[in-house]
């Protein structure tokens, strides 16, 4: 999220809205804003149904696997400390870019902590609007 906040205007310039969806209780949204500095729309789904429909990973291995541990250590070295988690600990994140007509332009599933999609990849997906879907040809 820290990666995205400085680039919010780039998404707006491409006519897109950036929406954050978490899994904690709604009352934790303000704390998330305070922590990240993100001022855009934030929603949550403690039931995790939207995460399931988005086909995002939820597993012990993804949460506590070697890759996640290494990422955590790397963050500690950088001076970033994770606060108390507010949400489902086993649920991984991800991203979807969806056009106004419902076309899924891009999908990313995180497979471990730190497996975040880059803002550049999301912005590039928005530039592909209007291209013919390869599967439909």
């Amino acid at each position: 999220m820290v990666q995205l906040q400085p680039r919010v205007r780039e998404f707006e310039a491409k006519g897109a809205g950036l929406f954050v969806i978490g899994s904690g209780l709604p009352q934790y949204i303000e704390g998330f804003r305070d922590t990240t500095g993100y001022t855009g729309p934030v929603y949550t789904d403690p039931s995790l149904k939207v995460f399931e429909k988005a086909q995002l990973v939820r597993s012990v291995r993804a949460t506590f696997g070697l890759r996640s541990v290494l990422h955590g250590l790397e963050n500690l070295k950088k001076g970033h400390r994770q606060g108390k988690a507010q949400g489902d600990m086993l649920q991984q994140g991800g991203a979807l870019v969806i056009a106004q007509d419902g076309t899924v332009l891009f999908a990313h599933q995180s497979n471990a902590g730190g497996d975040n999609v880059s803002p550049t990849a999301l912005l590039s997906a928005l530039e592909r609007r209007g291209m013919a879907p390869p599967d439909s040809q």
């Binding site: 809205g17 969806i21 934790y28 922590t35 106004q100 999301l122």
Partner: peptide
């Protein structure tokens, strides 16, 4: 409650799913 599909009725939507709020 907010219907998720409403997020892309007026703009293309970039949905970022975060692991947790902490």
């Amino acid at each position: 409650p907010v219907e998720v599909a409403s997020l892309w009725t007026e703009v293309d939507a970039v949905l970022v799913f975060v692991r947790h709020f902490g």
